[in-house]
Simulated assay, not measured.
Amino acid sequence: MRNFVAVLAFLTLGAVFNANAVDEAKPYITSKEVDLSQYLPAPPADDSAQTKAEIAELLAIQAKRTPEEEKAAIADAQENVWRFADVMGAKFDAAKLPKVAALFERVVATEDVVDDHAKKFFHRSRPYMVSDEIHPLLKKSTSGSWPSGHSTLGYLMATVLADMVPEKRNELFARAAVYAENRLVAGFHYRSDTVMSRTGAALIAQKMFEQPEFNTEFDAAKAELRAEMGLK
């Protein structure tokens, strides 16, 4: 009986691991296709005049941030495309758009693996690691600050969405800029981290759109989204 229970527990545990493996989104490209460490300049040193100026900017933002701004910055810490619902409208709903959801899960995975390599390469200290006067709104991370992964993802998601719904292109990129700005409000990044993310997002998007698998899933998701939104 003990052996049976042990085997059952092992099989159950294995099933859980297998399910997790199946559910994990596969990136469209990795740092092998786009090595940001080869395209981006090195970040300013922690004791540089630029970093000191950026710390001063963050302290100014921190001093005047309102409860509403803090709430928005915390909400934008979510790394998913549904943060763009305020631009896309009420029909932009994961439950109604499974193909869109699946596509952007892979987009998120793509940004994560590409940016993670660059963060480890550059290893820029987060603002709160340099100054104990910075009080972040979120749980502290020890990963590199350069470039901002959240900001890269925001601009990348805006790029893909803008190709699906060009009618909202300007609003999408404006929202991506707010998504990036909220990393400063949260005390998690320097402005230069977020500026550099624009380059990273453009490079990732360009290479991603060269992948046949991405284009097949993109076309299906685009058709689904435009149909749901009543666009021809």
Results as ranks from 00 to 15, higher is better:
G230A: 10
G187T: 11
P212C: 12
L40I: 01
L153G: 04
L36P: 00
F209K: 04
P27K: 02
K52R: 14
A177S: 09
V178L: 06
V113G: 00
M196I: 09
F122C: 05
M129C: 13
P212I: 10
H150E: 08
G89M: 11
L184N: 06
S31M: 06
K71A: 15
N18E: 14
S151Q: 06
M164A: 09
A118L: 01
N170C: 01
E105V: 08
F10C: 13
F188R: 06
A220E: 03
E224V: 09
M1Q: 08
R169P: 01
A95I: 13
P41H: 03
K168W: 01
E167H: 10
L40V: 01
L58F: 13
E171M: 05
H123L: 04
P127A: 15
T12L: 12
D219R: 08
V160P: 06
P166T: 11
V160W: 01
T30A: 03
A102T: 07
R175T: 01
I55H: 11
A177Q: 05
W146D: 04
G14Q: 14
G144Y: 01
Q206D: 08
W146N: 03
T51E: 11
K64D: 05
R191D: 05
A177W: 00
L172Y: 01
M88W: 09
H189K: 11
V113W: 00
W82L: 10
T216P: 11
M229Y: 02
L103S: 03
V100N: 00
I74E: 00
P127C: 15
D86R: 08
D46S: 14
M208T: 15
H123Q: 12
I61L: 04
V130N: 10
T142K: 07
S37E: 11
Y155G: 09
A186Y: 02
E213R: 15
Q38C: 09
T12S: 11
M196V: 13
Y39D: 10
I55D: 03
L36N: 00
N18P: 11
